[in-house]
Design a protein around this nucleic acid. Structure first.
Length: 600
RNA sequence: GGGGUGGUAGUUCAGUUCGGUUAGAACGCCGGCCUGUCACGUCGGAGGUCGCGGGUUCAAGUCCCGUCCACCCCGCCA
């Protein structure tokens, strides 16, 4: 079939032809001009004695008319054209007659009458149509990414990503930030995600790590006196993938000297304003703030979707001694009981209610108790276990009134919050309460500095080990680590964490104490972070910064649900590339040079 | 590591409950006709390792076991 397609046609070179215009920009005002356009055959309509070709380039689509009266040679060539052949067209722009205008095309008032044509390249029959009307599975798209990326939708996404990065760069440049590159081959650090390792040939048995972020380098650039740094930089984390997580991703990374959290947040708000303006989206000035404790209390999550209500309320104290064993025992065991109030609860059917346990099971919850608050009292399987005063207490805790549906979770704080946070999203979505054209930004502040890891039997850094505690908490660093709040802040958009940052520790004594609290001994700290402690000891300014997920920002601003759609060549969930088939085995010789041996 | 969904023509899917003649549709592809289409029309045609391996059966796309791939989620990750 390939042979038949290609047999009788000669390919041409460009010769002295130069493109005069992109397809998509031509208009009625160009009537009469002779133009040279080049691009791909988006589609071909052959009427026997007359052939129309929609020519596509990055800018759009333009109709070319091949008429034997205008050029017999070009017409003969048009007969052989097929989808995605690459051609150069010389022709004259003509206004279309009124009845042949195509209002669906930006260039629909005109067409190009072909006077001369060159076939630059042929295409085998395609695995899928590039025309944008055909649904294709992602697996096929990723294998033939070069074709997928031709689709106007993907072109627009990547062009937008370009404009987004440029607007950020321009803004930060204008705000006095200096773009400085940091190493990609660097050293492995404990804490945080699993590193991608790169073996050293020159020092066998030693490894570089690809950076999870340029964290330490940017701090050292502050010590070096650059005052304001930024970088749009690739980061690497060898963890399992999600729709919004790739093993390599791009951060907008910045750091500033002599600042408080407010200063970093102000720069961030300016940057987001410029970025969102590309989509006509307004960013509130300032972006509302929520403490971590409030976020957890009201939404059960540290990245709440603020586009809708459905807030949570805690009722542990109300039900501490109630007759319902599940509630009573949860509280007795140090757990909590929280309630999600759904207004107009009859929008959820009994079947919906029966399905609730399935929705929370992934988070370890054993069930969901529910109550319908009717005008004449409570309708609920657990109503009989709750006294009048307990009912009143619950109603006042969550503001319940007639018509509301209440959903209860009783378990450890983690299970309750995880479950209800997820339930809130699911139900908000199901009831159509989440407006899709709204962009709700929120700062989450005052994160805990440490989180206790039962697995490791020690405290781990919630943000990272270089985050500064609040000054007023310093004295409790050793005595009550769990109570320490960090000078850390996340910016959240529609329930997605866009960026996070902190003011850093700039005193070597404080840094050492935090390492101690994290169970990183003096010798290990010296060994792993000696260069940082050194740097801090030679005159470090107070400094802080933030890092943004460029991919996530691009995804949200293009209305996508997966960052793969704003990454030209993304990886699959198993971190492979379907186009290049990376990763791949390597030649034994390469392994020998690196001093590596594979086990079995 | 775990849970879920999917894999049938180049593509997107139906067919799988309840096993049964030659596995279908649309789009695409190939050929004929067609001078105003733009999802062109029209006539004809080709195209299948039913993801892969094993099993049950007279008989497997369909049932059973294993396995690979993609996606969503939990764990993991800021």
């Amino acid at each position: 079939m390939t042979d038949e397609r290609t047999r009788s046609i000669d390919l041409s070179g460009l010769g002295d032809w130069k493109r005069s215009d992109y397809c998509g920009g031509l208009r009625a005002a160009d009537n009469g001009r002779e133009v040279t356009v080049m691009g791909w055959v988006n589609s071909r309509r052959d009427h026997g004695g007359l052939i129309f070709v929609d020519l596509r380039d990055r800018s759009g689509i333009l109709q070319i008319v091949f008429d034997p009266d205008s050029s017999g040679a070009a017409f003969a060539l048009a007969e052989a054209l097929r989808s995605e052949f690459v051609v150069a067209i010389r022709g004259r722009i003509e206004k279309r007659s009124a009845e042949t205008i195509n209002p669906n095309l930006a260039t629909g008032e005109i067409e190009v009458v072909c006077l001369e044509a060159k076939l630059l390249s042929q295409a085998r029959p395609l695995p899928f149509a590039v025309d944008g009307n055909t649904e294709v599975t992602e697996q096929t798209r990723l294998k033939y990414r070069f074709l997928d990326l031709r689709r106007p939708e993907m072109q627009e996404r990547l062009l937008f990503r370009h404009r987004l990065a440029k607007s950020v760069r321009d803004y930060l440049d204008g705000a006095g930030f200096v773009e400085i590159e940091t190493p990609v081959l660097t050293r492995s650090t404990p804490e945080g995600a699993r590193d991608y390792l790169v073996p050293s040939r020159v020092t066998p048995g030693h490894f570089y790590a690809l950076p999870q972020s340029p964290q330490l380098f940017k701090q050292i650039l502050m010590v070096a006196g650059f005052d304001r740094y930024f970088q749009i930089v690739r980061c690497f984390r060898d963890e399992d993938l999600r729709a919004d997580r790739q093993p390599e991703f791009t951060q907008i990374d910045l750091e500033m000297s002599f600042v408080t959290p407010d200063d970093v947040m102000a720069v961030t708000e300016g940057m987001l304003t410029v970025a969102c303006a590309l989509r006509g989206i307004e960013v509130p000035q300032p972006i509302p703030r929520l403490t971590y404790d409030d976020a957890m209390r009201r939404f059960g999550i540290d990245r709440p979707d603020m586009r809708f209500g459905l807030e949570l309320a805690e009722v542990s104290d109300v039900v501490r001694n109630c007759e319902f064993k599940v509630f009573r025992e949860a509280v007795a065991k140090g757990g909590i009981v929280k309630v999600l109030r759904v207004p107009d609860g009859d929008r959820l059917s009994r079947k919906d209610l029966d399905n609730l346990p399935t929705l929370v099971a992934p988070y370890g919850a054993k069930g969901v108790a529910w109550v319908r608050v009717n005008a004449d009292g409570w309708q609920s399987p657990i109503a009989k276990f709750l006294s009048d005063s307990e009912r009143k207490g619950i109603e006042s805790a969550c503001g319940a009134g007639a018509g509301d549906l209440l959903m209860f979770l009783a378990d450890s704080p983690k299970v309750v919050n995880d479950s209800l946070a997820n339930l809130r999203l699911k139900i908000g979505d199901q009831l159509g309460m989440i407006p899709s054209d709204t962009y709700a930004f929120v700062w989450v502040t005052d994160f805990p500095l440490f989180d206790y890891s039962p697995e490791d039997k020690r405290y781990v850094a919630v943000h990272h080990p270089f985050t500064s505690p609040r000054d007023e908490d310093l004295e409790r660093l050793e005595s009550d680590p769990a109570s320490i709040k960090a000078l850390a802040y996340d910016v959240v958009l529609n329930g997605t964490e866009l960026g996070g940052g902190s003011v850093r520790i700039h005193r070597p004594d404080v840094q050492s104490r935090v390492f101690q609290a994290l169970g990183i001994g003096e010798a290990e700290a010296r060994n792993k972070f000696g260069f940082l402690l050194d740097a801090l000891s030679f005159g470090a300014p107070p400094h802080g910064g933030i890092a943004f997920g460029l991919d996530r920002l691009a995804m949200l601003l293009t209305g996508g649900t997966s960052i793969r759609d704003v990454i030209a060549f993304p990886k699959t969930q198993r971190a492979t590339c379907l186009m290049t088939e990376a990763p791949s085995p390597v030649d034994p010789k390469q392994l020998r040079e690196l001093g590596l041996k594979l086990s079995e």
